[in-house]
């Protein structure tokens, strides 16, 4: 099977973007801050492919660059270099990172969906759960009120939000339920690629387990290509088959999730796994 999302040579530097900023950064130097220019090399030379129905994990500590990679792919931020291709856009022939801002935002309607750690980043809290989903549907051209409501109800059912709460403002929802609404909204137009940025980090353990269960079922059933960014190996283990470990803005190890958890090669991966295993 061929990829649904392909990323090549992605880099993001805050500050001077020349080669001078790169020397002296990375895992071997133990920092992502350039000693010469002071620029922050948040991510460099990151590449991966994700197939439909597959989930790729991106794991690393805070500041390792994993969220930067996700934001660049999602279109929230412009990378310093690199390219990304979507099978659903021009059959993967066009670098979507080179598109203008408007075109990139349109990709978010039905081709790449993002679930953020903070539900407030993906939802309008003063709008009802149904209304939040309606925004995505109308952005894709839905103009039939009855069908919009039916589809919103179907999505809320899929993410296990009680339908009796459909018309309540999301602000009145608990954290776990807000996250379920955000997932429902992300799935509204059946996007082939789903990016999950720390989807359960803000939730307490039991609620997080419920959302994780839901996500695992959805990823299995819907056949989307997913990228899961997390600092938590537990989340990565549950949701993904392949994983990429990042440190100081570079990829230090990639492999099958089970294998990497059993037998991490890079010293940093070993530390992460040891920490996760307690």
């Amino acid at each position: 099977m061929s990829w649904a999302l392909k990323v090549e040579g992605l880099g993001r530097v805050y500050g001077e973007e020349g080669p001078r900023s790169l020397t002296g950064t990375g895992p071997e130097h133990g920092t992502s801050v350039s000693p010469v220019t002071g620029a922050v090399v948040a991510a460099w030379d990151v590449g991966f492919e994700v197939e439909p129905g597959e989930a790729l994990g991106v794991v690393g500590e805070s500041g390792s660059g994993k969220s930067t990679v996700m934001r660049c792919v999602a279109g929230d931020e412009r990378p310093s270099r690199g390219s990304a291709y979507l099978r659903a856009y021009d059959d993967g022939a066009t670098d979507v990172l080179a598109l203008d801002d408007g075109a990139r935002r349109r990709l978010r309607v039905d081709r790449v969906a993002v679930v953020y750690q903070d539900p407030a980043a993906g939802l309008d809290l003063d709008t009802s759960a149904g209304g939040n989903i309606a925004e995505r549907l109308t952005a894709a051209g839905a103009r039939n009120f009855g069908r919009i409501r039916d589809r919103a109800a179907e999505l809320l059912e899929l993410t296990e939000v009680p339908l009796s709460r459909m018309d309540d403002p999301v602000r009145t929802f608990s954290g776990g339920m807000r996250q379920r609404v955000q997932i429902a909204k992300a799935l509204a137009n059946r996007p082939p690629v789903l990016l999950l940025d720390e989807p359960t980090t803000g939730l307490d353990a039991s609620v997080a387990a419920g959302v994780l269960d839901l996500l695992r079922n959805l990823l299995e059933r819907l056949g989307v290509a997913a990228v899961v960014v997390s600092h938590d190996f537990g989340v990565i283990e549950m949701l993904t088959r392949r994983v990429m470990v990042m440190q100081h803005g570079r990829v230090v190890e990639t492999g099958l999730t089970d294998q990497l958890l059993e037998d991490p090669q890079h010293p940093y991966s070993q530390r992460l796994v040891a920490a996760a295993r307690g």
Partner: peptide, 19 residues
Amino acid sequence: HAEADYSRMWVGLYEDVVR
């Protein structure tokens, strides 16, 4: 306006009809 992105306006109508 520049991107003809009026989905928020539609949400406003949707919420009005729901309420």
